[in-house]
Amino acid sequence: MPDNYTGYKMDTNNTNINFSEEALQLMHKIMRRYPEGRQKSAILPLLHIAQAESEGWLSAPVMDKVAEILKVQPIEVYEVASFYTMFNLKPVGKCVIEVCRTGPCWLLGAEDIVKFIERKLNIKEGETTADGMFTLKTVECLASCGSAPMMQVGEKYHEHLTCEKVDELLDDYRVNTNEHISHWAKDKIKA
C-alpha cells in the first residue's frame, strides 16, 4: 500500500482554499498559453504553483481548487498529481531534501550521503523530522551525473556532495529556512 494514498473524507472546514493574488495571476497567464479549450494543459505548472502556495504539499481541497480553476473534474487532477513524483500528497517539512539515488550518483557514493542525512536528522527516508523542518526523499536521476553525488532542495542543485558538505548545508538550511521551500520558488511567483 503506497503511503501517499490519503483516502480520507473531505474536510469540509478546510475547503476554503485561496491562492495569493500573484499566484492566481500567474496561473491565468500560464493558462492563456494553450489554445482555447485546452486549458487543462496547464495542470502541471498550476500544481507546482499550488504546491508552493500550500506549504509544499497538495491536499485534496487544494487539488479541488486547481480543478475548479481549470474547469475539470477533481479526479482528473488527482490522477495527474499522483502520477508525477514531484507532487507531495502528504505534508512535508519546510525543507525537502531530494537526494539522487540513480546509477551514476550511486556509483559515486549517494548511498553514503543518504545514510549520513538519515543519521544526522534521525529520520528514515520518506520521513519528516519532528520539528517539521526537514523531509528526506530520494529521487531518480536529476541530470547532474557529472557532478555526482548530488541533491536538490527546492529548485536548487547541490552538487559534488561529501558528507562534510552536506553537514554544512543542512546546518545552513536549519538556520536560514523560515518558510517552505518549494520547487517553484516563491520569488518567481511574485515576479
Partner: peptide, 24 residues
C-alpha cells in the same frame, strides 16, 4: 512547459499526453 517528475515523459507520445495535462 514544465513537467512534474516522470522519466516516461521523455517518450514523445507520453510527453504529448503530459503536455495535454494528462498522466504521462
Amino acid at each position: 512547459h514544465p513537467g512534474g517528475g516522470a522519466y516516461i515523459c521523455g517518450e514523445e507520445t507520453a510527453l504529448i499526453e503530459s503536455l495535454e495535462g494528462k498522466r504521462g
